[in-house]
């Protein structure tokens, strides 16, 4: 069985500036990997490229998703194939209710999978079940997508979408940012409930604290556009204790 995700020597430029400089990463099926790194290391760029953002220029390398090339697919095709990006900054969509949006998404994906579209009542039953899981108020469904949501509500709304869409590969971009400890627990519980042998999760984070709740199988450190170290969850604790400066210094030394 091919890995869920395989990134090979990936180079990406944003507005002419090189951000990713040869990223290599393999995420096996059923595993949870964390990518840690300081601000500006390229974490969010990597997440956006995987989801299919079009204004980022891939200059070299390839990305395989379940053994097939990913980079030629449109964002919606990737989503329908089972890739989900939980945004660091979920976008507000005034005038479109959360429920309306969610059903459009569910049905687009179901249609792609050859399943019948859900009618209003079936959809509501499905979404209610997921809401309970995330301790979310049903009132959020009737509000415009993310509009006027608190930071915590926005992040929970991302996890709600993830739970409803049931992706194969979840990419979580700084899902912990802006969350207090209670909200963090709820979000982590939601993510953990989605762990399964045929689903892989890539957790992108600046801080170790999320990894206390979502225990990764492996931790990778992204520095200046490259994965500079990989290890077990203990690596995250070491980073927390010593700071990113420790690896940056080591890296400079080894370059010399």
């Amino acid at each position: 069985m091919p890995p869920m995700l395989e990134i090979r020597d990936l180079y990406v430029q944003v507005e002419g500036k090189e951000i990713l400089k040869g990223v290599n990463l393999t995420l096996p099926v059923g595993q949870v990997h964390a990518i840690m790194g300081p601000n500006g290391s390229g974490k969010s760029t990597l997440a956006a490229v995987l989801a299919g953002r079009e204004d980022y220029e891939i200059t070299k390398g390839e990305v395989l998703y379940m053994g097939r090339s990913l980079l030629d697919l449109d964002p919606e095709e990737r989503a329908r194939e089972g890739i989900f990006l939980a945004f660091q900054y979920p976008v507000e969509i005034p005038g479109v209710t959360n429920m309306y949006f969610l059903r459009a998404a569910v049905n687009a994906i179901r249609k792609h999978r050859g399943l019948p579209e859900l009618d209003a009542m079936d959809f509501l039953a499905l979404v209610r079940e997921k809401l309970r899981l995330l301790h979310m108020d049903e009132a959020l469904l009737k509000r415009s997508v993310n509009e006027g949501f608190s930071g915590g509500e926005k992040k929970r709304n991302e996890i709600l979408q993830m739970a409803v869409l049931e992706p194969r590969l979840c990419i979580m971009d700084e899902t912990d940012s802006g969350l207090d400890i209670d909200a963090l627990r709820v979000v982590a519980d939601g993510v953990n409930s989605l762990r399964s042998p045929d689903r892989s999760i890539l957790v992108i984070t600046h801080y170790q604290r999320l990894l206390n709740y979502i225990i990764p199988d492996q931790v990778h450190v992204l520095l200046d556009g490259r994965i500079v170290r990989s290890g077990t969850k203990e690596l995250a604790l070491e980073l927390e204790a010593k700071g990113y400066g420790w690896l940056e210094r080591e890296l400079t030394v080894s370059k010399l």
Partner: peptide, 14 residues
């Protein structure tokens, strides 16, 4: 564009 991208990452066509 940001809103369009967000919707498309949920499987919704352009």
């Amino acid at each position: 564009d940001r809103q369009l991208f967000y919707l498309r990452t949920r499987g919704i066509s352009a």
